[in-house]
Design a protein around this nucleic acid. Structure first.
Lengths: 189, 189
DNA sequence: GTCTATAAGGGGATAGAC
DNA sequence: GTCTATCCCCTTATAGAC
């Protein structure tokens, strides 16, 4: 049922946010993409803020599901981190997107409070999932016993978010470089 | 002569870009900050694009000067990288800003071509300066002879840019954590 | 649910007086 | 150099017909 109008609106809005930012698209852009009129969008999402909040919530579920899938399908830390990197490299390869989180965080002070709060939750918990993988890897001896999983997770998350942004504006190979160096430095460091 | 109107306009515009993004502020906002009318801004910067281009060029000079100062005042790689991190942590501590580069890159596809080009130059050369420090550190034996200065520079730059964005939207301590872990992993790795 | 019509204000930008 | 006045389009949003 991925062609119901609400989903199609969220899909189109997500692409616009990931390429132009929240302040960089209008209901008019969205309407022309989906093939309806702007007034019809207001039926589904009364205000643009409502759409943005729904967008971040849906993205939160998407990331959470991806993390659970990685945990279920891979046991080694190296493979799991590879999987995490894959979530974000998938953005860039499709339409030169960046992560929804970074796109919105770049305009942070101009966002409605509700969107800021959802964004905070998305970023905080994304780092939490990565920290969880690192914690388990530490127990298994895949990284140094002296390393700090929370701080390392912050590095991984920040570096991946930053790499997407930098890669899009400069050179696409930046993301692969960053991921590889990060892996080399992290595993059995 | 830092109180001439053109400088004050650029200062105010930079703060607005670093907090709200390019699409998140208007000439009206700018005018009220500086205390003149919107029409007067057009005298100095005919179009908003002209202002954005001037802003990125000035920021490029600022970063370049900061890098040269770091090179002149410090010789060890550790100190130089500390200095680089300081450039970016300075943003956050003043008004919760992020780097001009990341703020604009988040809205990349919505930017005028001229601004995209200036942004590309800023990000490419910023990484070049960091790579230069790493190259010299490699010659001095401060990092492993097997390490790749260009890839490492991409990691440092991406991680710092990402850390600012993540820190602002979640927890200010993220930046310090990322910087510290990065230093530990890089030096004599 | 989607449409047309429309409101009310914001946006960048220009003309011309001072 | 800065102002007032104004243009014209875009933007979000609502009312009400279908």
């Amino acid at each position: 049922m991925s062609d119901d109008i609400k989903t199609r609106l969220l899909d189109a809005a997500q692409l616009l946010v990931q390429t132009h930012g929240h302040n960089g698209y209008s209901y008019r852009d969205l309407a022309s993409q989906v093939g309806i009129r702007t007034a019809s969008i207001h039926y589904h999402f009364p205000a643009k803020t409502d759409l943005a909040v729904a967008l971040v919530r849906r993205y939160y579920e998407f990331v959470g599901a991806a993390m659970k899938k990685i945990e279920a399908e891979h046991t080694s830390l190296a493979e799991r981190l590879e999987g995490v990197a894959g979530i974000y490299s998938g953005c860039l390869s499709a339409h030169q997107r960046i992560c929804v989180a970074a796109a919105l965080a770049g305009e942070y002070s101009s966002l409605p409070k509700e969107v800021q709060d959802e964004l905070n939750r998305l970023m905080t918990d994304s780092q939490g999932w990565i920290a969880h993988f690192l914690e388990e890897g530490k127990k298994r001896g895949e990284i140094s016993p002296a390393s700090d999983p929370v701080a390392l997770a912050r590095l991984w998350y920040s570096a991946l978010q930053g790499a997407l942004v930098v890669a899009r504006a400069t050179n696409p190979t930046v993301l692969a470089d960053v991921t590889q160096v990060l892996r080399q430095l992290t595993i059995q460091g």
